[in-house]
Computed example of a mutant assay.
Amino acid sequence: MALYKTIGAFLLFLGTVSGYANPGACSGTCVNTHDPSIIRRSDGTYFRFSTGGKIAVHTAPDITGPWTYKGAALPAGSSIDLGGNQDLWAPEVALVGNTYYLYYSVSKFGVQDSAIGVATSSSLDVGTWKDLGSTGIRSSSGKPYNAIDPNLINADGTYYITFGSFWKDIHQVAMKNPPKAVASGSSAVQVAFDPVKTDEEGAFVFKHGSYYYLFFSKGKCCGYDTSRPAAGEEYKILVCRSTSATGGYKDKSGKACTNGGGTVVLESHGNVYGPGGQGVYDDPVHGPVSIRSRKTIWLIMLIIFALQILYYHYVNTKIGFADGQKQFGWNTINFSSGWPVV
């Protein structure tokens, strides 16, 4: 155990002295990938779902690419009767049993009249998604949240969707099983909030070891080509953790996530500007690996500390700042210190 702690400290030291790593390799279509959601099918095919184009779907043989556009997940848009039902946002894809679930947002930018919908498929392929309409998560003027940016977590057999953007930031609600609709009697509970700057969104809950980690994006996300925020006010990825999926999240300093807490995981660096819209994934190729497939001591260290993939969108300052130029980014992250380090 002492050796493990020493190796973990050394890896953390390397990350600290070298700063943030550049995004991993990406080939094929790596642009216009706002709010990506990544999942790998049992045949090894990677699927990437993203905002716009009625949920754009790309596939690749590896997370590095080459990514190929396959079409829209919901070519007819959403059946939810709200403005924006032809311009769907922030997809979240998860496998529940033998069925894939696609959660999406119906909204307009800066508007609180929003809803979270769901569609299902047995294969992930374009042309197979059946829209089921609203999950029952809906917001309007006067609500303490905005019903966008859904993320599904299964916590000891109970499903929860964590969601929200601005207003009073990030909330969570219990779902039925299977998770097609809000559980009877369940109401949304706030899990993250900054009382000074209510600019948190894009929640993603990931369990590692005995902790649930609440990743979220904070700052200005968009429109950098016409109005860039003050340095440090652009999008960045933060995290809090808790032993419960449903609350009590605190950052590394012990500050509550419901009182402005949040430890930075990834922010602007080098040519990377405004990373966010993130998710975390146990990737069998670039994350946790089989000891039989690697023979060097360095990769054995990685096995011990089970690296995961952090994926996100970002602006490459050498390419352009427009929303349509957002790039797909990914890095391995290390939890050996108890906190995710890129």
Rank of each mutant, 00 (worst) to 15 (best):
F328C: 10
D194R: 10
G270Y: 08
T332W: 02
T128M: 03
D35P: 07
S165E: 07
Y281A: 02
G136S: 12
V205A: 08
L132P: 02
G270V: 09
G261V: 11
K180G: 15
R292C: 05
S139A: 14
S79H: 01
Y103P: 00
T332Y: 04
T317H: 03
T135P: 05
T296G: 12
F10N: 13
Y224D: 08
G254M: 15
D62T: 08
F13I: 11
T6F: 13
R292T: 14
V182Y: 11
I137H: 04
L14D: 12
K54T: 05
S165D: 13
C240Q: 06
G209E: 08
Y311L: 02
L12P: 01
F204V: 08
N32M: 10
W67D: 02
A147H: 08
G279H: 10
V17I: 15
C221W: 02
D35R: 00
L14S: 12
I38W: 03
G84C: 00
S50W: 00
G223L: 12
N154T: 09
G247Y: 01
H58K: 12
G127P: 05
I291W: 13
S18D: 08
L74N: 00
N154E: 14
F109V: 06
G164E: 04
I297H: 01
G324H: 12
L238F: 13
S253T: 15
S139R: 09
P23M: 02
S141Q: 07
D81K: 14
V106G: 06
S121M: 10
L307M: 08
V106W: 08
G338T: 14
A231G: 11
V289P: 02
P275I: 03
K318R: 09
Y314N: 11
G77K: 03
P179G: 07
P61G: 06
W298Y: 14
I7W: 10
L132C: 00
Y224F: 15
N177Y: 09
A90G: 01
I116H: 04
I304L: 11
Q327G: 01
D149T: 11
F193S: 11
M175D: 10
S227G: 06
L74Q: 01
Y69H: 10
Y273A: 12
G77I: 00
L152C: 03
Q278L: 07
N32S: 15
